[in-house]
Design a protein around this nucleic acid. Sequence first.
RNA 1: GCGCCCGUAGCUCAGCUGGAUAGAGCGUCGGUCUACGGAACCGAAGGUCAGAGGUUCGAAUCCUCUCGGGCGCGCCA
Length: 557
Amino acid sequence: MTSGSPLQRLRTVLDDAVLNVTGGERPKSAPTLERPKQAAHGDYATNAAMLLPKIVGAAPPMIAERLSVALSEYLGDDLSSIETAGPGFLNLRLSDGWLAKALADVLAAGDAYGSGGAAAGGSGTESVHLEFVSNNPTGPVHIGGARGAAFGSSLSNLLVFHGHRVHREYYVNDHGNQVELFGQSLQARARGEEPPEEGYQGGYVADVAARIPDAATRPVEEVATEGIALMVAAQKASLEAFRTTFDQWFSENALHEPRGERVSEVQEAFDVLAEQGRTFEQEGALFLRTSDLGDDKDRVLVRSDGRATYFASDVAYHHAKRTRGYDRVINVLGADHHGYVARIEAAFEALGGDRDRIELLITQFVNLFDGGERVKMSKRAGEFVALDDLVDDIGVDAARWYLLARSHDTTIDLDLAEAREQSAENPVYYVQYAHARIRSILTRAEAGETTTANPGDGAVAPSERELSLALLAWPDEVAEAADRRAPHRIATYALSLARGYSAFYRDCPVLAAGLPDDVRARRLDVCRATATVLASALAILGVDAPERMDREDAVEA
RNA sequence: GCGCCCGUAGCUCAGCUGGAUAGAGCGUCGGUCUACGGAACCGAAGGUCAGAGGUUCGAAUCCUCUCGGGCGCGCCA
């Protein structure tokens, strides 16, 4: 709380000034300290004075004056100017000395700069159970699964960087009649026949069948089991190639099996629910009374013919998640599952869970285009675009970037023609290029090289200042992105940082012969800090931060 | 019919637990430069933030309604 980033320390000072002016009372909402949109409004602006009229009993401009006196005293030489503006904003400008000290702190933190903020933040660090993708094991990972994978893996990276502990899990739906249907489809293909009407029609089915010995003649259950195992292995490989790994692959089927002396997880969950008085029987079926807990209607756990529903598995799974003792359970679902949110939350609460400890995040659909033309996806005919196809087409970096650069709850229209363009038209390469360019300069600097570029006057240019201030915002960006489960903010930030670096690069030669040593050192520090932050941001997104990029890779001149 | 998500520049999207003149990428148009990596940079045009009310010092942001789009509403998984 006390040390922290340069910006945090500035906040603390602002806090002190507020308390000084109010005589110890805090405003209801914390004052902001933000980079204003317009450069004319200084390095940072605060709305503090506008939050205090009721407490202080004066108008905002008057309060702003008092705050400015306190801030001037506390900050001393670090402050170069302070002024009140508009309805009562305070605009501060920090000195070059303050900026230099701040940048030194950034460099001292090294690769860890911006990480670990959860410990100092409001909620503290948590152990998080994160379930994502959970594609059916009866086919390849499809485009929806790709978005879930990109989002889940990146969210996981982000939460870990922020200081939480994350357990990544994939729920394998290896139970129920789809498994049998898959087995029948495999066997049909093995016999050279068409799969059943409602079965799996995709071309991959025959490929999988061909890898199962005697698939045409063995019991269909065995064929199904082997087929599922092969599909899961294939999914795992696809996802790993997509830089998405899991700590555990959790079998739905296992929930239904007794565990040594103990009853099955499903039965145990039923028992818990019965004890809580949450279940009832009707017309021979067992229901969970989710309607008491915000769901539209009650849900069936066991059908009147005695078979458990898919929902029963889900209930048992969440019972298992709960009893495994995480602080928080996050479940990433595709948009077609949003109808389950209410019943899952209800079930979690019925099992004794705290509603505030479970989050169901919905990733919206991805529409694929190619040169403006819609790419058709028909799961039934097996013509859907698989994760592997996407990666083959546009590469892992571009695929992850395009799936992550937008908020998870907005539908994405992804144009493959644009995404596979390996040029500056493509933001992902722009950001990577900025990183590679900096690394190149740093390498040359270490070798003591100089260039013939015009050294200029060595002053802190506006673009150098802008870039430095952007770097100082990184810990806050991480905290906000993590708290809001919004990795796309990291992409937005990375792009703007890369642009900021371009401006700096244009105005501030680093290696120019004739540049004073201290200026060269200062600018190299800016380069180093930028490279570190860009690398951290790209790592969170699961996008490569290359040391160099070769021109020959470009598609066209 | 009910529920969830979305509606911001020509296109794709940021900004949304309220702040000062609404941003980026692409596209379009016009420029720059012996360039530390040209996969560069600069500039311009382009928006009644779907519409209407409300809340207040202040609304793209919060509330209500309307319109438009996507998805979901099984004793399927």
